[in-house]
Simulated assay, not measured.
Amino acid sequence: MLNQNILEQMSLVMENQFIANTNKNIFCNTNQLSFQKNTMIALLKFRKFICQLSEEQIDYMVHKYQNQFLDEFYKVNQYIYFNETSQEYIRTIYLTLLNELEDLDLSLEEIEDRHYKRITTFIKNSNPAIAQINHNDNRMAQQLVCAQYSGKFLCDLLNLNTQEIKEPVLDIGCGNHGNLVTYLRSKNIKAYGIDRETSAYGCTSIDWFAFNYGSMKWNTIISNLSFTSHFLYHHLENEEIANRYASTYMNILASLKKQGQWIYAPSIPFFEELLPNHLYQVERTSIHKDFSKTVITKR
């Protein structure tokens, strides 16, 4: 029972610490993140009991902290990307933190300093562009977040006629609430969605690199301010990740049935111009002076 109480208390302590750090800029020139006062008090009380936790309980805590870490960074910047190696390293960061807390010869101030230095170094190495735009005197991180638009708004924006849309439909980057998928399903259209974090009915939480799109499976694929906006961003920032987008882009096209369509915004002319005309018809339409959508039809 004691172990379970420690587990619950430690989880609550770290959850509150994540909340305290929400939106703070870890690269701020004048503001180093630190454990809040309540965190220090709780850790002084509970750290000597960490050694009593089982391997399974430690693994549970590390997994919980890893997910909270990812949630906080995704909330601030939609373009931040953590591959499988990076995600495993995040686990290592929190496993190391727990191991250091167990070492009573280390002061909490020393552990705190080591912990945030590990995080800062990790983000610099895994997402250098994020570090660059936040290396300033702003105490709050620069936010790059995609809004959750209503299903009807998205249909109007992309000129989707629910009377004519061909099913099944896949929404890539459907968002946590899956608004477009829910809206299409209310019209009795077979629609599904994927996003790295989603709790909506008919949608799957999965990285769009890891999802199995299949072959000649979808009649309509939609992605608004998601896949191609990330492709554009990483095309300019990270060649390795951009190559993964290029490969996944072709997998998505391969998953279209004949005469199937991929409708997305923003357009990516630099890549669309490379598509063979005898296989794909590309139509680009201006939505805004700096923004256009593309409809690709598989011949």
Rank of each mutant, 00 (worst) to 15 (best):
E240H: 15
S223N: 06
N219R: 10
T228W: 02
S229V: 10
M216G: 13
D207Y: 07
S186R: 10
Y245R: 03
I221V: 11
G214T: 06
L184H: 06
T198S: 05
I222S: 01
E239I: 09
T182G: 09
Y213K: 09
M216A: 15
K187A: 11
E197C: 12
I241E: 08
N179S: 09
L184K: 08
H234S: 04
A200I: 03
M216Y: 10
K190H: 15
S229A: 15
C203T: 10
M216H: 14
S215K: 14
K187E: 13
S205H: 09
N212A: 14
Y192T: 11
L180G: 06
L225H: 12
S215V: 15
T204R: 13
S199G: 12
S229H: 07
K187Q: 14
R185L: 07
W218M: 06
C203Q: 02
A242E: 10
D207R: 08
C174R: 05
S223Q: 01
H235Y: 14
S199P: 01
F209S: 04
V181Y: 00
N243R: 13
N224Y: 06
G173E: 02
I189A: 07
G193C: 08
I206G: 04
A246P: 03
A191F: 00
S223D: 02
K187M: 10
Y213I: 05
D207L: 02
W218V: 04
L225N: 15
R185G: 03
F209E: 00
I194T: 05
N179V: 01
D207I: 05
